[in-house]
Write a protein that binds this DNA or RNA. Structure first.
Lengths: 196, 196
DNA sequence: TGTACATCAGTGAACGCGCGTTCACTGATGTAC
DNA sequence: TGTACATCAGTGAACGCGCGTTCACTGATGTAC
């Protein structure tokens, strides 16, 4: 029983991306991941990679792209069904941090290179969420784009600093606090888990 | 005139660290820096490195250590002579971001590994600065350590997101805004470059 | 001042290794008749 | 049902390269007499 069961057609591509993502986390950086190590991890010889990717760079790009998709999907899933705009914003931010922490090395790599292309989509979602809070009269600010940038910056800081072992788990509990201070300048009246 | 002028004794060590730091920025990551490349950059052969460092890892550790020293020195210099506690806090935060942006790849590497040891010192300085604002009645919060953590997180986000080309230069001008919102919950009366 | 010698920072050659990539190949799968 | 063949994903061997590290060495600098 030393023969490997046959692979579904097109399955290797996904396996390679998963193997590469696992190695990114294990080694802690994208730069340390080699094509041969990915092939090894996927149980395949190195040249097999070239049937699915033109080179190592393309494979790693696929890892980052999958990261952006996962990040966006996690946020959208967490926000689905939440009506209150402030709760939507908080839930989305929490999902962002959780998704980032789930694969910290990949997350870092996603925003490492200048002009990370996949981040824009998530940012626009965030701008809308902040604007919704403002339109509902739940924020003292009127600059949705600017506030969204501040929040994104803070969330990015939470994910990357926690990956360095700083402030965890303090920051988890204070995420709502962070969001409220940054965009809801005048304290909101209600607030599910606050001082109520 | 093809002979290199003699080097001051002990100078090569500093040259190697500087060469390594330059390569970290040029390649964008610590992992991509090789011992041979550092030696080349410093105008020396590879084995010469072993006279000053036991191995490549030690050399790179020295780069990060220098980064922590530079960060702390920049903050202390910017704060020197500033009396007003809020202005001190803002000046220190500005210096932190400026110093981080001056060597973004090195900065990222400094806080990449879990339990980055050199960050604690700077954090304590920050806690003191926040506490000073509170004692002067310039902050509505009483949790200096918690607020300092929020600010540090945000500053970290500013440095690393800007390195990715996001939000620059928007975030530079809004740094005071960020600090004020995070710790000076009740708006301060004065404020040098604000809406005055 | 001049000579012999110790010191020691940096050199040059060499090693074994894992890397990315190429190439001709193999052997299982699916189709045509 | 059975046979011949096309397809094509993955293999195994090989290449040249830069790497980290070792070793014996060299040649400049400083000291002792």
């Amino acid at each position: 029983v030393d023969s490997v069961p046959p692979r579904n057609p097109g399955r290797l591509r996904a396996d390679l991306v998963a193997a590469a993502a696992a190695l990114v986390e294990r080694t802690g950086s994208v730069e340390a991941v080699t094509l041969r190590a990915v092939a090894r991890e996927a149980g395949v010889t190195a040249p097999a990679v070239y049937g699915h990717f033109p080179d190592l760079g393309a494979l790693l790009d696929a890892v980052l792209e999958e990261g952006f998709l996962a990040l966006r999907a996690a946020i959208e899933a967490s926000v689905a069904g939440v009506e209150d705009p402030v709760e939507r914003l908080v839930a989305g931010c929490r999902a962002y941090v959780t998704a980032g922490r789930a694969a910290p090395a990949r997350y870092r790599a996603m925003f490492q290179r200048p002009q990370a292309p996949g981040g824009r989509g998530a940012f626009d979602v965030l701008v809308d969420a902040v604007a919704a809070c403002q339109e509902a009269g739940r924020s003292g600010s009127r600059d949705a784009r600017g506030d969204a940038l501040l929040i994104w910056t803070a969330l990015h800081g939470v994910v990357t600093l926690q990956a360095a072992g700083v402030g965890a788990p303090d920051l988890d509990g204070r995420l709502r606090d962070l969001v409220v201070r940054l965009t809801l300048v005048e304290p909101v009246a209600s607030g599910g888990d606050g001082a109520g």
